[in-house]
Design a protein around this nucleic acid. Structure first.
Lengths: 231, 231
DNA sequence: GCTTGAGATTGATAAATATCAAAATAAAGT
DNA sequence: ACTTTATTTTGATATTTATCAATCTCAAGC
């Protein structure tokens, strides 16, 4: 992890958090005074689960995986994070510990802002507080969906959903680079890496996708969607 | 569902939401003017998933189950709710729909407060907004824990955790009434009712618990805890 | 006290999924 | 170009868990 400083000021940066639009010029300047940037290489850890959640972290560029470290060294990837995502987690307001870890997938540039400053502004700027509530709600909403996905669908459905997630939410294309290993794909869909391999093979054989270990191309989006719903 | 009105005013009621302590006398009076009470019999639905989330609902007395209606009629019980819990869900700030359903287990008294009023006060009272954030965070925190529990533990562990949840969080006793059927216990731990029966039998046989369909007594809390961690 | 129906239980079986071990590739470093 | 290391893949097998079909139990209503 090495440091650099590319952004002259928050005021001219549009890569951060949409909720910062609710800040006054003065408040934004306070943020600007209390931030620092850092860069991370692939696989470096940006946030470590369990450590004190002293900073709100925003990705400025690059892609990272957000995951929980569970029982006996097993991970659960919650989602991928890209530019303009607030990374902090609900632990901040519960026990001041990060509830998840975040690791860089590509080279990542991130902005660290002390949570004390954020908390202070939440207490003074209701619009900002509402934006914060909306962010929390949105994440909780997704968690509710995810818990159903993981508990009620079979492997085919979970994997199909993950493949569509990459296409729709991350890459906005049906032909994309697979940034996760089969192991990690398994950690995201709660299945063994061998099962990931086998089902990817099946999907390929049925001409629903075309894939290599490092790329995916969705050929039959309709069918993939049906599998993700019914599966 | 029949109506009654037991509480003369929010000002004299201590059974509602702790976050209301952050309100001024005037704000509390606004809440008081805009609330109405309702009672529910066992098994009656208090909140229906997917319907417009127009009200924040607080239980005043009784016990309810909070659950998501998933795929092909399968439910997932998230938790039990009792007095002083805010029931609304993250959908309120996302798509204005309840993301979960809530059904009365015992006879339930509840207070309905229009969300417009709540939202207005959030925008005017930062302390209240922070309280709201803490409530959301706490629930998200639990969801993070729950998703690990459901995906990474085997049946024994999940069931053990549920039994401890009742003892520790709901009844504050190791000898309690089992308010859920085996079917519902399965919906809470993501397992078939037959599996619940079998594992309850095993736990009983190993003298870790003593149980009837309507009661549970934890005999060996240590062992039960180990199972819930390792399982 | 008899009937009835919802839940609880049991045993047998099938389905879903993980694990293990080995071989085949691919990637990275020197 | 050559090791070395990590990932992917495959097949065989074990484990976990659900499903199905009966049977049983017990409390509520008549």
């Amino acid at each position: 992890m090495y440091s650099e400083n590319h952004i002259s000021s928050c005021e001219v940066c549009n890569r951060c958090w949409t909720n910062f639009r609710n800040l006054s010029r003065e408040e934004l300047e306070i943020i600007n005074q209390n931030r620092y940037e850092a860069s991370f290489n692939p696989s470096e850890i940006i946030i470590k689960q369990g450590s004190p959640s002293s900073n709100a972290i925003f990705l400025i560029s690059g892609l990272a995986k957000v995951y929980m470290e569970g029982y006996s060294g097993r991970n659960l990837i919650i989602n991928l994070a890209e530019r303009s995502t607030l990374l902090a987690g609900p632990g901040v307001h519960v026990n001041s510990r990060y509830v998840y870890s975040v690791a860089a997938i590509t080279h990542v540039q991130a902005c660290f802002i002390s949570f004390e400053v954020i908390r202070k502004i939440i207490g003074e700027n209701p619009g900002f507080a509402v934006g914060f509530i909306e962010d929390l709600s949105d994440k909780a909403f997704r968690m509710h969906h995810k818990i159903l996905n993981l508990t009620q669908k079979k492997m085919h459905g979970r994997l199909a959903e993950a493949l569509l997630y990459f296409a729709d939410t991350i890459f906005h294309s049906d032909d994309y680079e697979m940034v996760l290993t089969r192991q990690e794909l398994g950690e995201m869909t709660n299945m063994a890496k061998e099962s990931v391999v086998r089902i990817m093979g099946e999907l390929e054989h049925e001409k629903i996708i075309q894939s290599t270990p490092r790329s995916v191309k969705i050929l039959d989006r309709e069918k993939l969607h049906v599998i993700s719903e019914k599966g």
